[in-house]
């Protein structure tokens, strides 16, 4: 059910998103002012500051927003699909597959587009593998899907360890950055934003059905939801969001797990609020985390995945505590 305070919550999240966007644009090794940002956006300026913004800050900020939004939406879906509050976008092995792809590319000395394609290919392979095995006997149960995903994920983990232990120390460094999630090399394209917004639109279309699915598959079927079709749609939607996110940023942890829960604790239980809320809060969260990742130990950079955990853990615990005491 949508109530007035839900609309207010979305409004506040939109403000937070705009704030985080500017925070991210203004944070970094080069001091920039709001004026520089507007000059760069206006277009006909060619100063050094504008170049920094156009070539580094803006792409990186947008990558943070898109990745955070996709991961948070994927987390919402996985938690409902698997009926498990501990589910996150990576639980079914998608990030593992992507990591094996990416790490192999790094090992071969490939970068940029090659690395992204390898990661995306690894993610797709994992999606198809898990679905194929779980679907094998026609009985597509949530438990089977979860177990298949977890086992495949463990398999990828082993391959990752082999790659890590057999690589030279300087390639291991970039591998670790990829594994922890890092936006410094990120290239976000129009495709990611198309996926983000088209994904959000589709998610909104199915929000009512998800509200019912939360009450259990039997109840949902009894209320007219085509469970079989919905499950497959949810699996592939969440998988595609995750694959796209890890391709941009590596496996940034924590966003997909805690953002959905934070929103639920803040009262956004209806998926019509939860999905747009997840895009805004997930996006803001990652933009802020990345700003900190490149400024707290400057000129050194931290992988953003480390920062998401460092600020995610306490803020989640604070919200959990304040809502339980109510």
């Amino acid at each position: 059910m949508i109530q007035r305070h839900h609309i207010l919550l979305l409004g506040l999240l939109a403000v937070l998103t705009v704030g985080s966007l500017f925070f991210s644009l203004l944070t970094g090794s080069v001091e920039l002012s709001l004026r520089d940002v507007f000059l760069a956006l206006a277009g006909d300026d060619n100063s050094l500051n504008t170049q920094v913004l156009r070539e580094i800050r803006i792409p990186r900020t947008l990558a943070g927003f898109a990745t955070g939004g996709l991961l948070a939406m994927s987390g919402v879906i996985m938690q409902v699909l698997l009926r498990n509050p501990l589910a996150d976008p990576y639980i079914l092995g998608i990030s593992g597959g992507a990591a094996v792809g990416a790490l192999s590319a790094i090992l071969l000395g490939l970068g940029g587009l090659w690395l992204n394609n390898a990661a995306f290919f690894g993610a797709l392979l994992s999606i198809v593998l898990v679905f194929g095995i779980a679907n094998r006997f026609g009985q597509w149960s949530v438990t089977r899907l979860l177990l298949t995903g977890v086992v495949i994920s463990a398999g990828w983990g082993a391959v990752i360890n082999v790659l890590l232990t057999t690589s030279s120390s300087n390639t291991v460094q970039s591998m670790l950055f990829w594994l922890m999630g890092d936006l410094s090399q990120s290239q976000v394209g129009i495709g990611h934003f198309l996926l983000l917004f088209a994904g959000l639109a589709i998610a909104l279309l199915f929000s009512r059905s998800l509200n019912v699915l939360v009450r259990g598959e039997l109840v949902a079927a009894g209320l007219g939801v085509n469970i079989e079709r919905l499950r497959i749609l949810l699996y592939f939607a969440a998988s595609l969001f995750t694959a796209s996110a890890v391709t941009v940023a590596g496996s940034v942890g924590f966003v997909g797990l805690i953002i959905p829960h934070m929103l639920r604790l803040l009262g956004a239980r209806d998926h019509r609020i939860l999905f747009p809320g997840a895009v805004l809060l997930g996006g803001s969260f990652l933009m802020i985390a990345d700003s900190l990742a490149r400024s707290v130990v400057a000129p050194q950079q931290l992988p953003v995945g480390v920062v998401t955990a460092i600020i995610g853990v306490p803020s989640f615990l604070i919200i959990l505590r304040s809502t339980i005491s109510k």
Binding site: M1, V212, V214, R215, L223, G224, R264, R269
Partner: peptide, 17 residues
């Protein structure tokens, strides 16, 4: 089955799905 949090009115509204 118990699931993610929901209020009583939200739950009854699901009947209208």
């Amino acid at each position: 089955p118990d699931s993610l949090p929901a209020t009583v009115l939200e739950t009854v509204m699901l009947g209208r799905h």
